[in-house]
Design a protein around this nucleic acid. Structure first.
Length: 104
DNA sequence: TCATTGACAATAG
DNA sequence: ACTATTGCCAATG
């Protein structure tokens, strides 16, 4: 059973991000019905189980960078993105090219 | 209740 | 490109 509406909306929105595309925390928050709650999104993603099927790795910050420490988690996100065809050069993703914007 | 912290964001200098 | 500041939501001490 859904823990709450917002969380359910977040999962649904995240699940529809196609491979090879990315989205920012802010945009995802808006899609989840909580505009301006980018930080809340990050907190929720951190709570996801390691066995989740959700594409958490397609979520990056507004600057196009990985918002995780460069150790294990950050490196894994980077690898996952590259594996999907997303170019990550100098720790940075070109939002103009890879950002998933349903309204555009 | 207040202060701090965190997978954030926009703006200014 | 960098730091500093301010605003944001929620959890934690």
């Amino acid at each position: 059973m859904p823990e709450n509406e917002s969380q359910q909306a977040l999962y649904t929105a995240l699940a529809m991000i196609p491979p090879g595309r990315v989205i920012t925390y802010g945009h995802l928050a808006r899609l989840a019905g909580k505009p301006g709650a980018a930080r809340w999104v990050g907190r929720e993603l951190k709570l996801l189980p390691s066995n989740t099927r959700l594409p958490w790795h397609r979520v990056i910050n507004a600057a196009g960078r990985i918002s995780l420490p460069s150790d294990s988690s950050g490196a894994e996100q980077c690898e996952r993105l590259k594996a999907e065809g997303v170019e990550v050069r100098a720790q940075r993703v070109d939002l103009k090219t890879y950002l998933y914007d349903p309204a555009r």
